[in-house]
Amino acid sequence: MNRGQDLDSLIARAQGGDVRAFELLLAGHLSQVRRFARAFAGSDHDADDLAQEALLKVYKSIRLFKYQSAFSSWLYAVVRNAFLDFAKSRAGKERTKEDALDDQHGESAQGDPAADELIHREQEKQRLWRALRKVPVEYRSALVLFDLEGCTYDEVAAIENVPVGTVKSRLSRGRAALREILGESDDPAEGDENHAEAGTPGSTPSSHLPRRDS
């Protein structure tokens, strides 16, 4: 049985209510979905709850999957919609108090440069996550899928159900918004990155796995 047939079999079984088959379908995607959720949840603490709610929606609606796209594209499209709905429902409510975006430079207890660097890196990551959560939702998922997760333009376009040109536009605006939130000016080094692959035909998307940078 080849890989495609394995996937088809798992999908059919999951559509029949086989939870184990559904979990096997998710196996290669859980970390990515959890990271994706982290960009939309009110806090790191809530991210896993949000991810699970989205995956429940995927399971409940799996009978709607009719091979209209690659399974992974459909999966992330449903998950993304769940995150957008959550973000909209939060928009009108008082936001959960989050940590301030200001740097929280701690001090290494022993003044160890290597430890300092590790602490700084970790703080930077937390700062980036908090900033990502403030990027307008219409640009945020493109940023996460492309820049963070390494999906191709075509994969992001399939997930977001828009043309590649719209994906590029969302990325450009999302990056600009993120830099503004971080309080950083435009980085000349980003110019090439923003226009990378412009005019380049999209690569053949993989059916089930996102692009991974080497």
Partner: peptide, 26 residues
Amino acid sequence: PLGDRLRELRTDPPDDGFSLSLHKKL
């Protein structure tokens, strides 16, 4: 570059009971 910094966020979180909790909900 911002892209490099965002890519560094791509680390797999520990399971910490996530799979078990999801299984129960499913």
